[in-house]
Design a protein around this nucleic acid. Structure first.
Length: 861
RNA sequence: GCGAGAGUGGCGGAACUGGAAGACGCACUGGACUUAGGAUCCAGCCCGCGAAAGCGGAUAGGGGUUCAACUCCCCUCUCUCGCACCA
């Protein structure tokens, strides 16, 4: 055994070689089938974490596998480099965001390179560079032209003390994270993208993405939230105005006894204006604005309202309906107004009870008739219409259509479709984002920056304090411009774009990452590579990022820039990386090195080992990939991430598990060394001679393993079971007893097995396998070698086990030749001695035979 | 709260389409080799009763469908993700 497994030496050697030989650089090649594999690009936070390692390892296995299968594989990487953390670092430590970001990119790039990922680094991009965001600004101008980008009022979290806008994560229990002041709601004019213009197509294609996990599609459908219903018109009792509501329950219209309006709806103050209730209403509205939006709509939350001293009329009964502002109605769904039917909606019921409002039963329970006076909760099931004029006696669900038509006929409503999806607010009152290329002129109003003047470059000399309005608003040289229209004084837009905008089209940019002429995407290249064949990323992006990217793809298609309807053909959503937490009563959460023998190193108190949670800095349960690479090597880190759990499940980190992965690689290394001298110049077994005994079994196992690993990678991405299969093969190799004399046939079978162990592991642990491959005399680079195929005849089992059950319990097993006829198998099972004993003289009721698997005999008890 | 998932030995997981529950690995136990072992190789290892053969139990908990349920249906519990300004 001349050499020891030395991962750091091997890994560095091959990483350099792949880089020098440009192994993973690609161009369009019409002679090969393309495969575009993409992992969600990282935000450059400073260091890669295990979540990245896992995500990128999964992607790398597929990329390398597809390359071995002969595809022209595009596997790019870049940086989602705009975002809040850079701005926070600047506020806290005075480091300019660009400097902070670029330094982070440098160090993370080094870490990624140490993992041996097969990226085409030539296509690296960073979204905070003008070379990237200039095209985003161009698309913005086109969107503005088409009405897909527009301005309207939108609310933000506002800290009155810092005089600044807060992100949701900067609001802690309703208070500003920095100064602790109570956060209020503030309305600004902001930019929105009209994603709702594509809502039907976005929904339709949820049925045309068979390569996506069903649960992601379900979440997207629910997010879009299409519902069929009616827009109904309620005339005001004392004026010619009307209130419009959206409802899916027009069958209950005869039971609508009052009207509810979202507290923050402008109509509320309008109706209360000048009345004695005005001050009460204003107080109520202010209070509701501070209530948590999620809690407000909860079933258990106290339903509150205030009477607006106004009435409207029920459009079918003409009865007066008092109008209330309510906390559980939301302004941005439907029209922000709701007709209340207390007898058949639980929230309305509770509200009516509290404020003593009228209840009329309109859907009768056929089994247990309802009485409005004695009901204790709303009746929400199906039933027969009553108190509903001409519709009495109909089943309520069947009357939906008729009632809608009737309301239309009397001019009091029309059938409509409502969506939960709202337009995408992209304005951020922040510095570190792509500037919105618009100008506001005193005379001409909102004017787009002319295309020729793009990009609008983000200035670098900006003081960041975390207080006051948008930082850009204080940069005079940026803000003050002359109007492109009239030449008069004008102001630049100082909002920047939501960082989800950058990640909505980066996958297209990778196809022609350095294309520097309009529109930043080379149509020919984009057409060759898109759509992304396999997209891989965290499940946390299941809705927003993926929906925005789908929207952008459709829009850019309509601009003639892309030729595909959907960006990602197949999607793999991976689970979180978790680890147990350690906590000391005195010192809180502890790093693993702060725990010795179950005690805190500082105070010697017992440490509580908590449940496993997502790795995060605050829980101190993070594992540094650099440490793992230094200690075990990248191959072990990759191997463990894949072996510990299937990709879609959460992965629980285990230091001992890492040891186990490392030991397996050592085991592979040693068995190859063991046979190295004997198989170096031997050709793999050609299958022409008969085999028997140990080597026959080994060869069968080899071909079965090729089959299993291929299916596990190709069809399921279940790398954990693929690795298990190779472990079994390696175990079989160890079990195979070496004959006394040198035996050419024997060695050729060993050669075949050893070769396949190495090849099958190549996408998973590329460094060690490339090294071993070279040692056994592999001609080409393993990363360029073809994936093996298996011989189905060799892999087939000759003997199979038939399970014999009595009343569903296993009582015996019989071995039969795989070629045996079903009749014979059945007969053998019935006549099996143990079975005959078991059945005894009980009466056989039924015999179930599952071909080649199982016989179940049902007997009378 | 709403929407979407998940729950299997001491631990990570396997069982792909309703047909052998626990592959593979870790931990643990024993053996071999060794100057030594925390290296390596070999073996054992779900729980209960039992010397063994075997019998019974077991896939978060409860119910159901079925000859047969980790797998399908209903209810409950726990955990994870998303909820529109974290990315």
């Amino acid at each position: 055994m001349q050499r020891k497994y030395n991962p750091s030496k091997i890994e560095e050697k091959w990483q350099k070689l792949w880089e020098r030989e440009q192994t993973f650089a690609v161009d369009e090649d019409g002679t090969k089938k393309k495969y575009y594999l993409l992992e969600m690009f990282p935000y450059p936070s400073g260091r890669i974490h295990m979540g990245h390692v896992r995500n990128y390892t999964i992607g790398d296995v597929v990329a390398r596998y597809k390359k071995m299968r002969g595809y022209n594989v595009l596997h790019p990487i870049g940086w989602d480099s705009f975002g809040m953390p850079a701005e926070n670092a600047a506020i806290q430590h005075g480091i300019p965001p660009a400097k902070w970001t670029n330094e982070n990119i440098d160090s993370m790039k080094k870490q990624l390179k140490r993992m041996g990922f097969s990226y085409d680094w030539n296509r690296e991009l960073s979204t905070c560079e003008p070379a990237y965001y200039r095209w985003e600004q161009l698309f913005f101008l086109w969107m503005y032209e088409k009405g897909l980008a527009y301005k309207k009022g939108g609310s933000v979290n506002w800290c009155p003390a810092c005089k600044t806008v807060l992100a949701n994560e900067q609001v802690e229990a309703g208070l500003c994270w920095r100064c602790g002041s109570e956060v209020t709601e503030q309305y600004f004019d902001q930019w929105f993208f009209r994603i709702t213009a594509y809502v039907e197509e976005l929904l339709d294609y949820c049925d045309k993405l068979p390569g996506w996990p069903e649960r992601v599609l379900t979440m997207q459908r629910n997010w879009i939230g299409k519902s069929h219903g009616c827009e109904l018109v309620f005339p005001m009792a004392d004026s010619d105005d009307v209130i419009k509501v959206f409802t899916t329950r027009q069958d209950t219209i005869f039971g609508a006894t009052f009207m509810l309006i979202a507290a923050e709806h402008p109509l509320v103050m309008k109706l209360a204006a000048g009345k004695s209730v005005e001050q009460d209403v204003r107080d109520f509205v202010e209070r509701v604005k501070k209530q948590d939006r999620m809690m407000r709509t909860s079933d258990y939350y106290e339903k509150e309202g205030v009477f607006l001293d106004a009435y409207c009329l029920n459009p079918v009964t003409n009865k007066r309906m008092p109008i209330y502002a309510a906390n559980f109605v939301l302004a941005d769904y439907g029209t922000g107004c709701v007709m209340a039917v207390p007898t058949h909606d639980q929230r309305d019921f509770e509200f009516a009870e509290k404020y003593g409002l009228q209840k009329i039963v309109v859907i009768q329970n056929p089994e247990n008739p309802l009485d409005a006076a004695t009901m204790t909760e709303a009746y929400v099931d199906e039933g027969i219409l009553v108190n509903s004029g001409r519709f009495d006696g109909m089943k309520n669900l069947q009357a939906l259509e008729d009632i809608a038509e009737y309301l239309e006929s009397i001019g009091r409503g029309r059938k409509t479709i409502e969506y939960r999806l709202r337009d995408w607010g992209i304005s951020r009152q922040r510095y570190w984002g792509a500037p919105i290329p618009m100008i506001t002129c005193e005379k001409c109003g909102v004017v787009p920056v002319p295309e020729a003047d793009l990009p609008v470059i983000l200035p670098t000399d900006v003081a960041l304090t975390g207080e006051g309005e948008s930082p850009l608003a204080r940069v005079a040289s940026f803000v003050n411009v002359s109007c492109p229209n009239c030449g008069g004084p004008a102001r630049r837009e100082t909002d920047t774009m939501d960082t989800f905008v950058e990640s909505s089209w980066y996958f297209a940019r990778f196809c022609s990452a350095h294309h520097d002429s309009k529109p930043g995407l080379d149509r020919q290249k984009v057409d060759y590579w898109l759509p992304v064949d396999q997209y891989i990323g965290g499940i946390e992006h299941a809705i927003m990022h993926l929906l925005y990217a789908r929207f952008y793809t459709k829009m850019l298609r309509d601009f003639g820039v892309l030729g595909v309807d959907e960006p990602f053909t197949n999607l793999l959503t991976q689970g979180m990386v978790c680890k147990e937490t350690a906590r000391c009563r005195e010192h809180g959460y502890l790093f693993p090195e702060e725990v010795r023998n179950g005690k805190c190193v500082r105070c010697d108190r017992e440490v509580t080992i908590g449940k496993t949670e997502k790795m995060s800095k605050s829980l101190k349960n993070v594992v540094d990939p650099n440490y793992i690479i230094d200690e075990y090597g990248a191959d072990t880190a990759r191997m463990f991430c894949l072996f510990a759990a299937p990709p879609e499940r959460d992965l629980e980190w285990s230091d001992q598990g890492v040891d186990g992965s490392f030991r397996f690689l050592g085991r592979v290394w040693r068995i190859v060394m063991e046979y190295l001298d004997d198989i170096q110049n031997v050709a793999p077994f050609d299958g022409r001679e008969e085999l028997d005994g140990d080597i026959k079994i080994l060869r069968k196992k080899t071909h079965q393993t090729i089959k299993k690993v291929t299916i596990d990678i190709e069809e399921r991405f279940h790398f954990n079971t693929a690795i298990s299969a190779v472990m079994e093969l390696v175990n079989a190799l160890y079990q195979t007893r070496r004959p006394e004399a040198e035996d050419a046939k024997f060695l050729s079978v060993i050669r075949e097995t050893v070769e396949n162990v190495i090849i099958l592991l190549a996408p998973i642990v590329p460094h060690i396998t490339e090294e071993l491959w070279g040692m056994i005399g592999g001609k080409q680079r393993l990363s360029e070698a073809p994936w093996p195929s298996f011989d189905a005849t060799v892999a087939a089992e000759e003997e199979i086990t038939i399970v014999v059950q009595v009343n569903g319990k296993v009582r015996s097993r019989i071995q039969v030749a795989a070629s045996e006829s079903d009749e014979t198998i059945k007969g053998l099972a019935l006549n099996d001695q143990k079975i005959r004993q078991f059945v005894g003289d009980r009466q056989v009721i039924k015999e179930i035979y599952v071909p080649k698997k199982l016989v179940n005999i049902v007997v009378k008890q």
